[in-house]
Write a protein that binds this DNA or RNA. Sequence first.
DNA 1: ACCTGAACACCGTTCAAGT
DNA 2: ACCTGAACACCGTTCAAGT
Lengths: 228, 228
Amino acid sequence: MARDVEQAGRKQAHLKRETVVQAALNLLNDVGLEGLTMRRLADHLGVQVAALYWHFKNKQELLNAMADAMIADWGRDLPDDEDWAHRLQAGVQDLRRCLLAYRDGARVLADTYVAEENTLRCAEILCEILVQSGCPPASIFNAGWTMLYYVIGLTIEEQAFHTSVDSAYQRILAAALPSPQYPMLSMFQPYLENYDFDARFNYGLNLIIEGLRQESNKSMKEDGSAEQ
Amino acid sequence: MARDVEQAGRKQAHLKRETVVQAALNLLNDVGLEGLTMRRLADHLGVQVAALYWHFKNKQELLNAMADAMIADWGRDLPDDEDWAHRLQAGVQDLRRCLLAYRDGARVLADTYVAEENTLRCAEILCEILVQSGCPPASIFNAGWTMLYYVIGLTIEEQAFHTSVDSAYQRILAAALPSPQYPMLSMFQPYLENYDFDARFNYGLNLIIEGLRQESNKSMKEDGSAEQ
DNA sequence: ACCTGAACACCGTTCAAGT
DNA sequence: ACCTGAACACCGTTCAAGT
């Protein structure tokens, strides 16, 4: 147990915000968001619950810090490419990687409204990439939000799916189909039961990027004709 | 108070699943997902907490039923259009309407894996629409999921934004910008502070649909050449 | 069949008091 | 400055017992 080592012979653990956040993320992987309680976290740190409230105003503030820490290593290996669409794709894929690195990571990010270091850096770089599409600023921001919402939405479901113990979804689905009431769902049932989230994610991401590329092409053409 | 009326002179309230679910949805609008507790719900129904556990195995099962009930009136006014893209757009917009009808509605749906009546009907109709795009079945399902994830992701953030009391996001954002560390965010700050979620939603939805339309056109062309 | 009463094992948060 | 001890006002869930 970490706690034995931590407080051996000491009266105060001398917590740092950073170590608390890291311990919380580790605990998250063990017990999930539902099991992540202030008491359990304090236990793991060899400290009383109330001690956490000296470092964090409340649980939400801790969750905010966790969300920002989760994307600390975002964008390490972005390709140094000339094609903005390719860089964008890699960036959004890497965001999903960050969320998948921790159990319920997507829900932590979704339940959170952070504007701290890593989040801002991530937003800055995504803007940089999107600017190169040549689309107007309003579109750049809307497109950025679209990517973010899509990643969060998909990854929440993906992580909920993986941790659902009894997989009630599959049980009920199997009971309901095939049925004459749902001809489409019955006809395509094998596709409904395809749970390859990587493929699912990449398909949708590509859809969004292709939509954006179209607008980009239009914008470029208008710029070109304006210059002539 | 409803509870006074409900149990006046009676020993048993004779709850139905449906009335519990509806009371839960009403309570959700009053107190939000965080404030929605079994005890409070029991109170509103003029009943002891334990009574709820005769009708629902646990809180999650209640939430599942709430999620399905939330989209009970989905698709009422779908246009009887010949253009699949237009119907698709209307359908996804209507899904957002359903989620926005209840406080934290999107989070309720996201925390849930439902395959019950309304959900299946909704999926069936969306498939019907998507089939008319002429895309292959795998694409149809992936595209359907993409829409769903996008709506959920966006609406979670939208509803979190509206109910965030202190709006920490805007506070921290204002403190961080403008800054030479974030040239893009600083340059486009007005766009960052645009919180028109309707416009944001419709832009991204259109992006996805345009991407899908491209694949549809390709599929149609291949079909045409195959017939010749 | 449907609900009550009472308990169990937890929560987040606060705050005086210690060092 | 940083943490302990103890309390407050809650949770979800279970289960014997009532009707």
